[in-house]
Design a binder for these strands. Sequence first.
DNA 1: GCGGATCAC
DNA 2: TATGGTGATCCGC
Length: 688
Amino acid sequence: MEGSESASDKQRPWQSYHTVYTNAKAGMEGVDKEKVQRVVYEMSKGSKYFENEERKEAFIRQKIEHMRVRAAKLSAADLSHYQKVAEKRILELEATRELSRIWLHVDMDAFYAAVETLSNPSLKGKPMAVGSMSMLSTANYEARKFGVRAAMPGFIARKLCPNLIFVPTDFNKYTYYSGLTREVFRNYDPNFLAASLDEAYLDITRVCKERGITGEEIAEELRSRVHEETGLTCSAGVAPNRLLAKVCSDINKPNGQFVLPNDRMAVMTFISSLPIRKIGGIGKVTENILKGVHGISTCKEMLQKGSFLCALFSRSSADFFLSVGLGLGGTDTPEARFRKSISSERTFSATEDAALLYQKLADISEMLSADMQKEGLSGRTLTLKLKTASFEVRSRAVTLQKYICSSDDILKHASNLLKAEFPISLRLIGLRVSHFNVDKGDIPVDPTQKTLTKFLIFGDYPKRTGDDQSSFGSDLSDLHFMNEKETSISLDSHRTGHYEFGAPFERNHLLDIDDSNCISYENACEMDKTGELFSHKTAATVKTDDVEERSAKSPKKELSRVSEDDSSVQRESEDSNTDRSNKESSASGNEDDHKLFWVDDYKCSLCGTELPSSFIEERQEHSDFHLAERLQEEESGTGSNALIPRQRVMPKEYVGNQNRRKKHKPSPAKVKHLPIESFFAKKSGQKL
DNA sequence: GCGGATCAC
DNA sequence: TATGGTGATCCGC
């Protein structure tokens, strides 16, 4: 709390080394925190990493000090003004309170570790962690007793717990078991939100009503069904909104649940003593700032210090903090979103050898390009991320005139960005592409395109009423629940599980519609990315526009000036846009291929699926799918592995489970003539 | 639009 | 020996 070094810091310097993993977590109750803290400090001390952490800490202390000064400078008039502002905002927020919905958050217990124990029962009862000597994904509860936990480097964990068993991550196992849990979830809310492989949010309002039972009973039943289906335990939280449900699921972890009734008083009581760090979106830094500047450590104090919050933070931040104080957050049904960027990065042993660094850059370009091709993405902003040998992170970006996706294009521009940084010693290089051309998909000839797209892709699940916070609350709900990232800590070894089929999610989901409850293991991976993630989607652009409008800072209408380096503007004879999978299909004229698919400008010549010519994106994706299929066949014929889904083999340990899978998701070829109307039928006829 | 930072998993 | 990878958002230029 105190900004400067105290006497005890000098005697016990580890006390001032703040790490993310000293934060209390489930299963860490009986841990000797002091000892853990000391060991972590001792193991880290003197390293480059440690020095960087100290720099960052110092910077935050400075920031806090600066904010304190600003707060102290507020005049009485200022304060009274902001007090009124805060009171008004609190009233407005309170008016959005929604207590008619019941949300359930499920969180698998030590998921990766539990799955590993399932496939190797001899691990049972022994301290074990999933990950490497460099970094752990998670630890089982036996290991947590020693202070070992996720995000901790393995070599420190081993110091804390010399008998710790290390198990390498096997992402496919987790994806498979995640699929099993999701089949259970689907029975309670077909539109549940998957937050990650091991977490999900379910709106159980309807199922409670239909069956005339309480949220508590649903939670019990759901957890036991998850256990029956997977052999894994999970914890659940039931509350009137997602933010609270998430907090609740943590309370009786592992293998427990906690129910917060839909009652305003209950919510306020619950929230009042709750440490702010428990709230999703408030991390180590925000906690430090709120505590250091305003002495805030519980949610209740957010309201008490409302005037300061309104005075010192942006409107959206202040709104978020105040709503936390009120126990609001996430009762609407967020619709699906499209990804906004795609990236690839790798850590390696630090080097300043330019040739080596360029080689790394080329590798990353290849990986990124391959990922982009798989999803049919191309974008016009390229961002280079660097981490120096001293752990300093930098980024450099260009926005180009044309959309790029080939590794050559990526490498060309990335090299220009990197060139300017020499000499430099790096331990990480990353590349990200954003500003996709697909989100320009609003231009289609047919103005209803957007609606239709969403509808086709997502089956247009029944809209729920009671969208609170619609006026400004997008900020609030947006802070959470949009992240469907796999959380694997994947080192160079595996690009597993992700988007295996090279099929954009839209198409997969479209095909899913006919068979939505049946996921085969082979398709479980894509289901991850394609199903839940994007099945609750709405125009993210609406929100973005809203925000930009409100902040109204920069004149948006400036001419599209491009910051592309002029050297690279050399136009090769580019046939504009259809270059998505150019690299892969270089042998055969790609553009022609796309045209060939559509017989009479209506039907797919390969599988009979009908798509009117105005369904531009859908057609593109559909064609891409067939192309990808063909490429896979070709590639497997030649024995190259480049495009072959690597994880389609059922690992031996769950061969027995395979029978549970009812059906396979049909490939386009199996869907024989899926008429347009059937999509509409699904819309209204969606059951459960 | 860029770059730094924070956060979640 | 050794401290990850992916994606999103926000803020201040």
